[in-house]
Design a protein around this nucleic acid. Structure first.
Lengths: 347, 347
DNA sequence: ATGAAAGCGCTAACAA
DNA sequence: TTGTTAGCGCTTTCAT
C-alpha cells in the first residue's frame, strides 16, 4: 500500500493523485470511477481502494468541461414559502432520483428581473434542461430560453405560448369551472379574495375565467379584498371579516388560495355563520392542510406533484436522447374537490 | 456592425465568438464581461454590444475551472415540506443576495445515506462553502466535510461537536425550558406527541431535555403518541383524540411541532375542552400559521431566518477571505411564546 | 485492457 | 490599455 498521510489536504485530490497512489494511469482511473469501458477486476480494486483512502471527490467542473455534459436540471420557481412549489419540486425529485440528473433550484420571488438573473446564472452552468414556473416571461428571458438549446419545460400554466414543452393546468378554465359550480349551487352574491400581486399571472387568469363565466350567467363579483404579506391564515380571517361587514349580502366567497380560504373558514365557524347554507366558500390548490380543518374547504386540486413528475419526465427523456423534438403539451384537468363548503343541493 | 445571423445557435456561444464579432481579444472580452482590469470605454462598448447581440451567456464551468473559484454555496437540508427549512433558506438568500454567492439546495429526506450522496455530489462542484442542517452526520459525511477545506456551517442544532462553525439553538435546552414553564404553571399529567422519526435528532434532544427536567421535579411523561406521514394537522387531531381517550387524566400536551399542535388545538376547541384550564398545550417552532388560529398556541420561536442569515454571513465573510480561521459558534436563545394555551396563572 | 495526446472554454500571469 | 501563453482537471479519441 502506498504511504497515505492522514493530514487533510489543502488542495483537493485530483485524478492524478489517485493515479499515482494506485500506480494506474489517469485515464484508467477515470474509467474506473465512471464505470466506463473494460477494466480488469484487479486494477479496478486498486483504483477504488486508493480513491477511498485518499477521500477523492471527483471534480465535476473539469469533467463537465471536458465532456460538455452536465447532469444538472435548472428548476426556477417564484417562491419556496408557498407550499405549492415544494410539492412540485418533490415530484421532480421523485423522477430525477431514478436518473443521474440533479435538480438545482432558483427562486425568483415573482420578480421578472430576478427571473432573468436567476435564469442567466443557471444557464451559465450549462444545465441539461430547464423547468420553469409560468408561461409569462420577459422578452430577454424568453430569448435565453429559446437559444439555450436544451429542453425547456414551462410548468403550472398552459394558457399561452410556451417556448418549448409545457405541463400544467389552464387557470382560466379552472376559474371558469369553479364559477360554473358556484352558479349551479345557486349562489348569486359572490365575493372574491386574493393576493395583491399584479405579477401572479395564474391568479389573474383564474379570476378572468371566473368573472367571464359569471358574466355569462348575468352575475358579477360583488366585492373583493386583496392582501400582501403576513400570515395567509390570519389574512384570510381579516379579509373575510372586512368583506362580510362591508357587503353583508354576500353568499359566496372565492379565495385565490387555500390558506386564506382556511382562515376565512375558521373565522366563519367561530362567528357561527351557517356554511354553506348562508355562505359558501371555496379555495384553490388542494393543500394537505385542509384535511385537518373542522370542515373541509371546497377547492380545486392542481396536482402539483404530478406536474413535477411529468416535467421531470420530459427533461429526463430528452436528456437521454429519446424523443426527437420538443413541444410536448400536457394539460392536466383540475378536479373540484367539493368538501363541505360548496354543495347546497345534494348531488 | 458585424453580420449577425438570427438563427438560434446549435452550439452555445463562446468568448471566442464574442471576440471575433467585436474584433477584441478574448482576454479583453473576458475582462469586460467580468469588470476586471482597465478597459477603455470604446472597447468595453464594442464588447458589450457584441455579447448582447449574440446572446452570449458565459460558461461558468470553464471559468470556474480556470480560476478555481466557484460562487456556489451548498445548502443541505432534510426536507422542503417542513416549512422550517424554506424559512432558513430565505434567511440565507437574504444575505447571499448582497454577495456574488449563490445557494444550491440539496435535500436529504432525513436519510444519512442520502445526505452522503448529496454532499458528495455537491462537493464535486467545489462550492465555496457548505451550510448543512444538523450536527449529526455519518462518519463518511463528517470526513468529507472535514477535508473539503471550505467553510462548513452546521445549522439548527448546537448540541454536539461541529466540524467547523455552528449556528442554531440547543434543542436539549429548549426541551428543558418548556418543561420548566409547564411545571411552573402547575401542570402535572403530561403527554407528549411527536413524529415517528428515529433520525430526527433535534426532536429527540428536545424530548430528552424535556423528560430530564420533568424527572428533576419528580414528574414523568404519562403517555405518548407518534405519527409519520400524512397531513400533520389531521394527525395532530387524531393523536390528540387518541391520547386523551387513552389517558383522560392528562392535563398538558407537548407537541414536537406546531402543525400537529395546531391540529390538537382545533380538536380541543371543537370538543369544548377548556384551555388551558383543563388542558394546556404547547408546540415547537413558532410558525406563522399559528397567527391565524382561533387561539394562539404556545410555542417556542426558533428564529429560523436568523439562523439562515448568520450561517450565510459566516460563509460569505470567510469566502471573502475575512476571518482567519473557522469554528464560530452562534447559539441563539429560543424564547417561549406563551400564546393562550400555556399560562394558567396571570404573570 | 490500458495508455498518450489533445483540448473543453475560460482566466492567471506575464509581456508589450 | 491590450494581447500572449499556459494551464485548470478532466474526457475524448486514437494508439497500443
Amino acid at each position: 500500500m502506498t504511504d497515505i498521510r492522514k493530514i487533510p489536504p489543502r488542495r483537493p485530490m485530483t485524478l492524478r493523485d489517485v493515479s499515482e497512489a494506485s500506480g494506474v494511469s489517469e485515464m484508467t482511473v477515470s474509467r474506473v470511477l465512471r464505470n466506463r469501458g473494460d477494466v480488469s477486476e484487479a486494477t479496478r480494486d486498486k483504483v477504488l481502494q486508493a480513491a477511498k483512502e485518499l477521500g477523492y471527490v471527483p471534480n465535476k467542473i473539469a469533467g463537465a468541461l471536458a465532456s460538455s455534459r452536465v447532469n444538472l436540471v435548472a428548476v426556477i420557481i417564484p417562491s419556496l414559502s408557498n407550499m405549492v412549489f415544494p410539492e412540485v419540486l418533490s415530484g421532480i425529485t421523485e423522477v430525477l432520483d431514478d436518473t443521474d440528473l440533479q435538480p438545482v433550484v432558483g427562486v425568483t420571488n415573482y420578480l421578472p428581473e430576478r427571473e432573468e438573473r436567476v435564469l442567466y446564472e443557471m444557464l451559465s452552468w450549462r444545465p441539461s434542461g430547464i423547468i420553469i414556473a409560468g408561461i409569462e416571461h420577459s422578452e430577454a428571458s424568453r430569448s435565453m430560453l429559446r437559444s439555450a438549446d436544451i429542453p425547456v419545460v414551462e410548468i403550472m400554466d398552459t394558457d399561452g405560448e410556451p417556448v418549448d414543452a409545457v405541463v400544467g393546468i389552464s387557470h382560466r378554465a379552472a376559474g371558469r369551472r369553479m364559477a360554473e359550480a358556484i352558479i349551479k349551487q345557486g349562489f348569486e352574491q359572490i365575493g372574491f379574495l386574493g393576493t395583491q400581486m399584479p405579477l401572479d399571472h395564474r391568479a389573474r387568469k383564474r379570476f378572468e375565467g371566473f368573472t367571464e363565466t359569471l358574466a355569462k350567467a348575468g352575475l358579477e363579483v360583488l366585492d373583493q379584498e386583496f392582501y400582501s404579506g403576513g400570515s395567509a391564515l390570519a389574512k384570510g380571517r381579516e379579509m373575510t371579516q372586512a368583506i362580510l361587514e362591508r357587503s353583508p349580502d354576500i353568499d359566496f366567497l372565492y379565495y385565490s388560495n387555500d390558506m386564506i380560504g382556511a382562515g376565512g373558514l375558521l373565522y366563519c365557524l367561530e362567528k357561527g355563520i351557517e356554511i354553506p347554507g348562508r355562505l359558501g366558500l371555496a379555495g384553490f390548490n388542494g393543500v394537505e392542510l385542509l384535511q385537518g380543518l373542522p370542515r373541509k374547504l371546497a377547492t380545486m386540486d392542481t396536482e402539483r406533484r404530478q406536474i413535477g413528475r411529468d416535467a421531470a419526465g420530459i427533461v429526463a427523456r430528452r436528456a437521454k436522447g429519446e424523443e426527437s423534438e420538443g413541444g410536448q403539451r400536457i394539460v392536466l384537468e383540475p378536479k373540484i374537490s367539493w368538501g363541505d363548503t360548496l354543495r347546497r343541493y345534494k348531488p
